[in-house]
Write a protein that binds this DNA or RNA. Structure first.
Lengths: 214, 214
DNA sequence: TGCATAATCGAACGTTCGTGCTATTATTCG
DNA sequence: CGAATAATAGCACGAACGTTCGATTATGCA
């Protein structure tokens, strides 16, 4: 790898950490340069503009999402096990990624939702893809007979995303250590609702047991 | 009312609209002064500092919340009707308030969740109060026999907040006109889960009918 | 009406912002 | 090794930032 690429990667590592704390627009070339041990102009040359830096950060986040959330989940069986893995990985990916200030993508979504431009577009597209992945996972679970055919994949995917966004707030704004547990419980409640028409009698015990274990 | 108070109120109106689009830290004294037809220093004198302006904006949002979401809901019977009113009002309050760029409080929550200081504290405290109000409303519904005694008020309140946060993203980032409908559906699903142990047989029809109507 | 006081303005401060340039130092490869 | 090229530093720029202060105008009450 060329030297330039190496420093660019190093810069982005710092940029992700910084952006997770102060946001994408709060991210400043001066402070980032100082933190990375480069001159302002030296750092600037790597991205061409502040917007270029912001886009690079988001691409970095996408890469991390992929590596820490989706790829590991592919090891699990399609359907419910994989969907559960995605949600579990998702809920702790900022920890694994050593991001000191929570999910950059979610914060950017709220930050740029009314600021037209390439950044908003990239964030929007990224989250749409994530949503599609969730929808597909739910569909697989339905096809595998693990969720009821009455389940509404789009609605479920929406609610899963909502749970994630809510968990972020509880964890970071309220400093609530129970946020993850609460989110997982909400997720399992979601699955219960769409559970397969089970052997009559006390049919919801099997899926409810998961939430109790965690 | 003194003249000063009047202009201060006018400034805050513009500030709320602006902050809803570009965020609390994006909000700038220069642009706000221009938009309000005041000089920078003239506007500055009303708030003493940028942080003072930000705090005033959040106080303004709290006032609007109160006027548009909670107070009208107090007209309804305690319990489920009031809880439903809160959620419905909440989901459309930014529209009623003519805020062009979505919910300032939610955006501020993600913006400041890692930035210690009075702003973060005020946002955090405001959302905690909102949460408590929801918990109380759920409890009333339980006491009134409208929700099962098995219902977990804290968990329900968490999920309601999550739904709201999720709806914001769908509406503003995805420009999805179905966001509100989806959110209300998620809410009704939540209530279904905690529905009272009903006259056996097909006990979930009464509460499900609401979602179908909307 | 007159006077104390409140409200607003204008200009300036020192910083920091993003962004160009030109030079200089490193790295890569024939 | 030496030449071509990549990578970085240094410096400067205009603009905008939050903030201060003294001057000026408008307001409200005796």
């Amino acid at each position: 790898m060329r030297k330039g690429q190496k420093t660019r990667t190093a810069i982005l590592d710092d940029a992700l950490a910084l952006a997770s704390q102060i946001g994408l627009s709060g991210l400043t070339i001066g402070t980032l340069a100082e933190r990375s041990g480069l001159s302002k102009s030296g750092l600037f040359a790597h991205f061409g503009s502040k917007e270029g830096l912001q886009l690079a950060v988001i691409q970095g986040v996408r890469q991390l999402y992929s590596d820490l959330v989706f790829l590991p989940a592919l090891q699990r069986q399609p359907g419910l096990p994989r969907l559960r893995a995605i949600v579990e990985n998702w809920l702790e990916w900022t920890g694994s990624a050593k991001l000191p200030g929570g999910c950059i993508m979610t914060a950017a979504a709220y930050e740029f939702d009314d600021c037209p431009g390439p950044v908003r577009e990239l964030v929007s597209q990224s989250l749409r893809e994530l949503r599609k992945t969730l929808v597909r996972s739910v569909r697989m679970a339905v096809d595998a007979g693990q969720l009821s055919t009455d389940a509404d994949p789009e609605q479920l995917a929406f609610e899963i995303c909502a749970i994630y966004a809510g968990a972020q707030l509880d964890a970071r704004l309220f400093d609530d250590p129970d946020a993850r547990r609460r989110a997982l419980l909400a997720f399992e409640n979601l699955l219960d609702r769409s559970a397969c028409a089970a052997p009559p009698a006390i049919g919801r015990d099997a899926s409810a047991s998961f939430a109790e274990k965690h």
